[in-house]
């Protein structure tokens, strides 16, 4: 996780009610809608960002989609934390983003 630690120091995040963006090395590396999909049974996060947005309005009773920020304030703390973590993870060494030129 050493590289990941280093990375988190070097990023800028725009935490918006509609979209969350992350800049790293002067490049926008994350540009995703501010939304998470959660499994109601386990409370686990199923998807973050675009993937969760595709589910929005199409969920069945076991899945809910949550926009953690509403009206410019945090409406759901827990979901907000999951979202921030999920978005930062998108640029972790395991992801492919860093390998892009």
């Amino acid at each position: 996780m050493g590289l990941f630690d280093f990375l988190t120091q070097e990023i800028a995040i725009d935490l918006g009610t509609a979209n969350t963006l992350i800049i790293h090395n002067d490049k926008v590396v994350v540009d995703e809608p501010s939304i998470v999909a959660i499994d109601r049974m386990t409370g686990k996060v199923i998807a973050v960002g675009k993937q969760a947005m595709m589910m929005h309005g199409k969920t069945h009773e076991n899945i809910k989609t949550v926009r953690p920020l509403k009206d410019g304030v945090i409406a759901d703390f827990d979901a907000a934390e999951h979202m921030i973590r999920g978005m930062i993870k998108m640029l972790s060494p395991k992801g492919s983003l860093l390998l892009l030129p």
Binding site: I11, I13, L15, V73, I74
Partner: peptide, 25 residues
Amino acid sequence: MVICIPSGITEVEKRAVRDSAEHAG
């Protein structure tokens, strides 16, 4: 890390954003 927050955000919410970022490393 620098995080941009809506300016209507309360102290408690600022704390929450900060905590989430710290949990993420």
